[in-house]
């Protein structure tokens, strides 16, 4: 407990002494005086419609760019030429295990 009192007390004293001397050193600096100053935000004059100049088309209007439409066909999944059942029968025929299936 004595350690806390001694070390803490010493640190608090050092902080206050160093803080005062450091503050005296820096308080006259212009940068420090300006540091926390807030510049008031001034509203700009209201922009009215007449202030906005119309676009100059003296050299002709720019052509509007429209991307060419690409003809794309909707992707359609290819139908398998043979149905699954037929494929199965064919593969069994190849094996020649089932004579009833032979033509």
């Amino acid at each position: 407990m004595k350690f806390y009192l001694l070390a803490g007390g010493l640190l608090i004293t050092a902080a206050s002494v160093y803080g005062i001397t450091d503050y005296i050193k820096t308080k006259n600096k212009k940068e420090f005086q300006k540091m926390y100053k807030e510049t008031a935000v001034t509203l700009q004059e209201n922009v009215q419609l007449r202030d906005v100049k119309e676009e100059d088309f003296s050299r002709g209007k720019p052509e509007s760019f429209t991307p060419p439409k690409e003809e794309t066909k909707p992707a359609v999944a290819k139908k398998s030429s043979k149905s699954k059942k037929k494929q199965l029968v064919q593969s069994l025929r190849k094996l020649k295990w089932f004579p009833c299936l032979q033509k």
């Binding site: 806390y4 608090i12 206050s16 803080g19 005062i20 926390y36």
Partner: peptide, 22 residues
């Protein structure tokens, strides 16, 4: 808590308070 407050938090806070905003 005690270690942090007595040896770090309070002394550093005191030093920084000299330059606080306001």
């Amino acid at each position: 808590y005690v270690f942090v407050v007595l040896l770090i938090g309070a002394p550093t806070g005191l030093y920084m308070s000299f330059f606080a905003k306001g």
